[in-house]
Write a protein that binds this DNA or RNA. Structure first.
Length: 434
RNA sequence: GCGGUAGUGGUGAAGUGGUUAACACACUGGUUUGUGGAUCCAGCAUGCGAGGGUUCGAUCCCCUUCUACCGCCCCA
């Protein structure tokens, strides 16, 4: 293990080889599908002024009070590594006046990259983790809610995931939410003594959280609590009904979950989560979470603009993919592996490899002076389609051997005419495979 | 931030207060020297997360620390 001081920071990961392939696949899939829905990419800084996050998340939220990875820079500015994507995107939206008339509305964008939270690592929870997220600004239309939800579902489906469910709820508008909150507190207050310790503090800080408490007794008490649906304004009711209607039309399955709430204050109306029912990820069942919000753009000095978005945890997504055996982790096999014998062949071999690469093939060779047998073993391990052998003899005659690793058949290849010959020879060898 | 479990080579792991730390996989080399995926042979931890202590002696006992994992808070 070596020196203890050179360990990677707590809660971070090094990704390489197979792991990277799955990441690339996911990111590529996201770009492809989001583009179909008209979402362009936005890249914002990985850190912002501390206040950007404090302002958007609410000063008392856990994210701000205990999870922020913050620091003072050399100019004594209070900065923070981004704990989530929305705040930075909203800041950029306002700062670049993307609400201006020359830009599309709704303004639809996605982002992907690392996020940071100073907390104790655990299953599906890291100090540096990655999110793929989406935001759409400037439309209150419920059809946009439906589009966003549909897009996540389609994206996840494209990765071959199974056992997912979309949980849907509404928080109502500001007024509905406040009225409901009061009603909930009024209902719970008489039971305060019976509530779990955690829920007693939640009663003060964030009563809605009690709804999804894990404590059994809390759940019993909550079972008879009033629901948000009793307090929705007509407008919020209509909005939610419309979202459900669109999702039904689109054939997207969802479940209404009245106990689902949000950690951040700015959400209202539609909220949703995509969760897995896979028991392996019980502690990190939520793969993606999002919803509609209002007031954020104003908070950053822009015009009143509604928004909707979601964030998706890539690490969680990957553990789920792996649990389901869906992770595609085989690297692509090599087209050509060049075996060379003798020291004088190195130059010629490198030359041939370069020529093959210029022709668009993948090709590799040995750089450690190993035996022919060893080189063939490597070719095999690299899943090479063809092996080309160069020895003293071949260099002299300019005729090399090309071997089809699947069949063992060999043919001669004229080095002087690689470009013209190759395709023909490959065709012949392939024919012999029949 | 709180509580719990663990930490042996590239990997999975066995193991004991006392000369050479099992076994398997992987890897490297060889099996007549220019040909792979099989078999067989050989090699592969001066070291048991790090630091300190107890002891004649510690990988195995004690303390501290780091890290990972599990649960809570919270969340992706």
């Amino acid at each position: 293990m070596g020196k203890a001081n050179f360990q990677r920071p707590k809660g971070t990961a090094d990704l390489f080889e197979e792991n990277v392939h799955e990441w690339q696949h996911i990111e590529q899939q996201a770009r492809k599908i989001f583009a179909r829905y008209g979402y362009g990419e936005i890249r914002t800084p990985m850190f912002e002024a501390f206040d950007v996050y404090a302002r958007s998340a609410g000063d008392t939220s856990d994210v701000v009070t205990k999870e922020m990875y913050d620091f003072n820079d050399k100019g004594n500015r209070h900065m923070a590594l981004r704990p989530e994507g929305t705040a930075g995107v909203v800041r950029a939206y306002v700062e670049n006046k993307l609400f201006g008339p020359e830009h599309e509305s709704p303004y639809k964008i996605f982002y992907m990259g690392p996020m940071f939270r100073y907390e104790r690592p655990q299953a599906g929870r890291f100090r540096q983790f990655h999110q793929i997220g989406v935001e759409a600004f400037g439309s209150k239309e419920p059809s946009l809610d439906a589009e966003v939800i549909t897009m996540v579902v389609k994206f996840l489906a494209s990765l071959g995931l199974k056992g997912l469910k979309v949980a849907l709820n509404t928080l109502g508008d500001q007024g509905s939410r406040q009225a409901y909150r009061d009603a909930l507190v009024a209902y719970l207050q008489p039971h305060a003594d019976e509530l779990s310790k955690d829920s007693q503090t939640r009663l003060e800080k964030n009563p809605l959280r009690i709804l999804d408490s894990k404590d059994e007794n809390d759940q019993k008490i909550v079972a008879d609590a009033p629901t948000i649906f009793d307090y929705l304004s007509e407008e919020s009711k209509a909005h939610f009904a419309a979202v459900k209607g669109y999702l039904d039309d689109l054939g997207i399955d969802y479940e209404i979950d009245q106990t689902m709430v949000r950690g951040l204050d700015y959400y209202n109306d539609t909220i949703f989560e995509v969760m897995t029912t896979d028991p392996n990820l019980k502690g990190a069942a939520t793969i993606a979470g999002g919803g509609r919000y209002s007031g954020l753009v104003e908070e950053f000095g822009g015009p009143e603009t509604p928004g909707i978005g979601f964030g998706l945890g890539v690490e969680r997504l990957i553990s789920l993919l792996q649990a389901q055996g869906q992770a595609e982790m085989k690297p692509a096999g090599l087209d050509f592996y060049l075996v060379h014998i003798g020291e004088d062949t190195q130059a010629k071999t490198l030359e041939l490899a370069t020529a093959l690469r210029d022709l668009g093939y993948s090709a590799d060779l040995d750089f450690t002076g190993r035996s022919v047998k060893a080189q063939f073993k490597t070719a095999n391990r690299r899943d090479a389609r063809f092996v080309i052998t160069l020895g003293e003899k071949e260099v002299k005659t300019n005729q090399v051997q090309i071997k089809d690793m699947a069949t063992g058949h060999q043919a001669d290849l004229d080095l002087a005419k690689v470009q013209d010959d190759l395709a023909g020879i490959v065709k012949v060898l392939e024919a012999e495979e029949e």
